[in-house]
Design a protein around this nucleic acid. Structure first.
Lengths: 118, 118
DNA sequence: CAGAATCCAACCGGATACTG
DNA sequence: CAGTATCCGGTTGGATTCTG
């Protein structure tokens, strides 16, 4: 998945010293490291929401990006998508238990921001 | 800072309901939401490190991105940069107290990854 | 409402090569 | 070692149009 370029200064037989530990973090960031994933999770912590509700709640996002992120998050088991055959159609998104377990980290980041980006 | 496009379906007088709360989170992500900031912080939690050490420790990063992130993080008071006039030159990076306070969140994300990306 | 599709500009990120 | 400079492709983002 990651390119394997080695720098020219070090032959590094045992180079993987720390990277194994960071690798898991990178995998996590591959899932929720995008620009909008965490804001979406944070918004959904209040409970299930419809597509346009989410779009309106997150300042600066647009339809295309929201669709893309929601699909990605659904594929990773972080949210659930429910479709209701109403007119006009209703689609609701909910955090899965797996997704909810991300909340402490995100809330913690949010709190850090309140303390330091005054 | 953010564009203000409104969708055509909803006039939304009171639209900012949730976005104020997410705004702080977005500011945080503007600082450490990049692809490499959190891995760097995670790596630096072990103590001060030199430029090439960091570069070798983080699989997949390249020089330009590392420089850019380090500058950005220094400008945001997350890390400290120390230059030593040696030959060859030595530059060491350290987490500031402000930066250290991000660790719980990042460790928490890492732990989540260990549980769910097996 | 909930998207899908398309076009296009802007920026981000990656691979290298080069310098003090 | 610690960067800087350069080229370049992919992604992001915005606007707009269309469909069920």
């Amino acid at each position: 998945m990651y390119s394997n370029r080695q720098n020219q200064w070090v032959m590094a037989k045992n180079k993987m010293s720390v990277s194994e530990k960071t690798c898991t973090l990178k995998e996590v960031l591959d899932i929720i490291g995008g620009k909008w994933a965490m804001p979406i999770i944070y918004i959904l912590s209040k409970g299930k929401m419809r597509f346009k509700e989410i779009e309106r709640s997150i300042e600066g996002i647009n339809t295309r990006m929201l669709v893309k992120e929601l699909k990605n998050m659904e594929a990773n088991g972080i949210i659930t998508r429910e479709v209701f055959a109403t007119v006009p159609p209703t689609v609701e998104y909910t955090l899965t238990p797996k997704g909810e377990k991300l909340l402490p980290s995100i809330v913690s980041l949010h709190t850090w921001g309140q303390e330091f980006t005054a």
